[in-house]
């Protein structure tokens, strides 16, 4: 039995390591390409380690993307926080206050997730102009919050639906109303859900390219992903610089994941869920 167990464990680790390689392989290419000087970058020699370490491309890339990096921070943090809060309260309503037609409304919200952004750029710009929000950070934050309504509602609704109604009933008996139940019962145990939703929204908004570009009306003030792409010329690409820029641009989402990731996993085990 224990021999069989040993084999099973071994097999499990083998599979995990294989997948670790699968996930790491493109990242490896990204990093070593960023460390090569321009003339050594070639598709045909992509696996070869650089001959020495060249951080020039990172310096160059940082010089190119840093202003837009700042813009992205200023958009992403408020947009992710606000849209998570909206999602939380919407998810609460959809999960626990199913007024007549709420489920249909929820499905109608979900359809919005499939909206192709490439096709709605012109109405979006015209609408924001009418609201005097075109070309402003506020306008872009609003846009991200609105387009985030469906996904955040979906994720929070799923989480709140798993919370036993007995808890709600107990709160009811203690005299809590609509906001009281949310404030005292659900919000304190919502952190895992917030982690999931924040991670999603942060990544989506940070990686957004098109909406930020068009709503802010000018590549100069556009989000960092536009700057990453702008490290390329029209007939040739400095791959080392672009890869470095891509890594710099990916850094915040990676940091956020590292910080929230544990919370995201650990959170579901903790607290009132079991109890």
């Amino acid at each position: 039995m224990s021999v069989q167990r040993l084999w099973t464990r071994g097999a499990i680790y083998l599979v995990l390591v294989a997948f670790a390689l699968y996930y790491a392989m493109p990242i490896y290419v990204l990093i070593i390409t960023g460390l090569k000087p321009y003339k050594d970058v070639s598709m045909l020699r992509m696996w070869e380690l650089p001959q020495g370490l060249y951080f020039d491309s990172f310096t160059t890339a940082w010089g190119l993307v840093s202003p837009n990096f700042r813009t992205s921070v200023m958009i992403t943090i408020p947009a992710a926080l606000i849209s998570s809060m909206i999602g939380s309260i919407n998810g609460y309503v959809f999960a626990k206050w199913r007024f007549r037609g709420a489920d249909t409304l929820f499905i109608l919200f979900l359809v919005g997730m499939f909206l192709p952004y490439q096709g709605i750029l012109i109405p979006l710009v015209l609408t924001l102009q009418k609201l005097s929000l075109y070309g402003t950070l506020a306008g872009l934050i609003l846009t991200h919050c609105i387009f985030g309504i469906p996904i955040t509602a979906l994720l929070f609704r799923g989480y709140y639906a798993s919370i036993p109604n007995e808890l709600m009933d107990a709160g009811k008996i203690d005299g809590c109303g609509f906001f009281g139940l949310y404030r005292h019962i659900l919000l304190p145990i919502s952190m895992p859900a917030f982690a999931v939703v924040l991670l999603w929204q942060f990544t989506t908004i940070w990686n957004d390219y098109l909406i930020g570009l068009v709503v802010l009306s000018n590549p100069v003030q556009a989000p960092v992903m536009v700057a990453v792409k702008n490290t390329a010329g029209s007939f040739s690409v400095d791959w080392n610089v672009q890869m470095s820029a891509a890594l710099i641009a990916a850094a915040p989402t990676v940091i956020v994941y590292l910080l929230l990731g544990k919370l995201f996993m650990r959170g579901l085990l903790a607290g009132a869920l079991k109890g």
Partner: peptide
């Protein structure tokens, strides 16, 4: 961490 890392990378990259 390794498995979820790619999720932080944008579609273009």
């Amino acid at each position: 961490t390794l498995f979820i890392f790619p999720f932080a990378v944008s579609g273009i990259v």
